[in-house]
């Protein structure tokens, strides 16, 4: 497999994952805005932009945080190189450049996603059709994932796709938790007091975890419980622990095929064993923000090691 092809598959997966997560965040933000007063919803929209790391670029062209501005900016605005539309385009461009590494099903799913979303996002998104647009983004991502699951050989191509997916997902979940925790909660004194369930609901919703969490916890909203769920729960497919485990097993798949491990394996093992031995109380004692910042940085290091070890660039 060419290093450039591995890079293309890896980034295709990351762009798709990021586009999908942005749609989730917007969905959560919108739900919040519907039920809250304006001040809180402004904060919510601000936090959405901050979570995707685009505060600076957003503020360069927008003075205020209204829903319609934020979702149009994050979904489709031309001057935003990180919009969902741009990411889907990037994913498709990556897919085109590695066309031979994909099955026809996967390529068609990506190409179709791009064609549909390009049409849907061709004009400004009004509130009336926001739900439809966000649903379409998630549905298209699901379609691609399904095509990958159902048609791709379980070889290096598949491994790089999965590693890209879960590196990106771990990053996104960590950011959501980090930003939401600090932006949304007026103070940590809220911890243990009567909680604003809607706000917590928004956090869970942005990782599509609200139902699973409620089912597991009989509906009780508790910040430690939610953090535990999003960081440590091995059953939840968007938790850090779950994502990390997938990165680890797919890296193991590569080592198996290539007959050797690389520095990325070492790093992921290190990160994995640290998380494995952690409890949520320990994380809170040491500081959730510090933990997440460190996690995001290490996760990034893993991605860089993969790029280097597998010769993504000449």
């Amino acid at each position: 497999m060419l290093g450039r092809t591995a890079r293309g598959v890896f980034w295709m997966a990351r762009y798709l994952e990021r586009a999908e997560n942005t749609a989730r965040l917007l969905d959560a933000g919108h739900r919040m805005a519907l039920t809250r007063d304006e001040a809180i919803s402004t904060e919510e929209w601000r936090s959405v932009v901050e979570t995707v790391g685009q505060t600076q670029s957003y503020q360069a062209s927008h003075g205020t945080y209204t829903g319609i501005q934020v979702w149009n900016y994050l979904l489709r605005e031309k001057n935003n190189s990180q919009s969902v539309l741009a990411m889907v385009e990037n994913a498709r461009t990556s897919a085109r450049s590695v066309r031979t590494a994909l099955t026809r099903e996967v390529w068609e799913a990506i190409n179709e996603s791009w064609m549909n979303l390009r049409d849907l996002l061709g004009k400004p998104v009004r509130e009336a059709n926001l739900g439809e647009v966000l649903n379409a983004i998630r549905r298209q991502a699901t379609l691609v994932r399904g095509a990958v699951e159902g048609s791709m050989l379980r070889n290096e191509n598949f491994n790089f796709f999965r590693i890209g997916t879960f590196i990106e997902r771990a990053d996104n979940t960590a950011r959501i938790l980090d930003v939401k925790y600090y932006v949304l909660l007026p103070s940590l004194a809220w911890v243990g007091s009567s909680l604003d369930n809607v706000q917590w609901d928004s956090v869970l919703r942005s990782v599509s975890g609200e139902r699973a969490y409620r089912w597991l916890n009989a509906g009780a909203m508790d910040p430690r419980g939610i953090a535990q769920f999003m960081i440590l729960d091995q059953r939840f497919p968007r938790s850090l622990s779950f994502s990390l485990d997938k990165v680890r097993s797919n890296l193991a798949g590569l080592a198996h095929q290539y007959g050797q491990e690389t520095s990325a394996h070492e790093q992921v093992r290190g990160l994995g064993s640290r998380i494995h031995h952690l409890t949520i109380d320990r994380i809170f004692d040491d500081g959730l923000h510090e933990f997440l910042t460190d996690f995001i940085a290490t996760n990034r290091q893993v991605a860089l090691a993969i790029e280097r070890d597998y010769r993504f660039y000449a």
Partner: peptide, 17 residues
């Protein structure tokens, strides 16, 4: 940019060299 001359052959950069 996937190709270069290595040891007297034209070679492609794979994930394993």
């Amino acid at each position: 940019n996937d190709l270069r001359v290595v040891d007297g052959r034209v070679a492609m950069r794979t994930t394993q060299g």
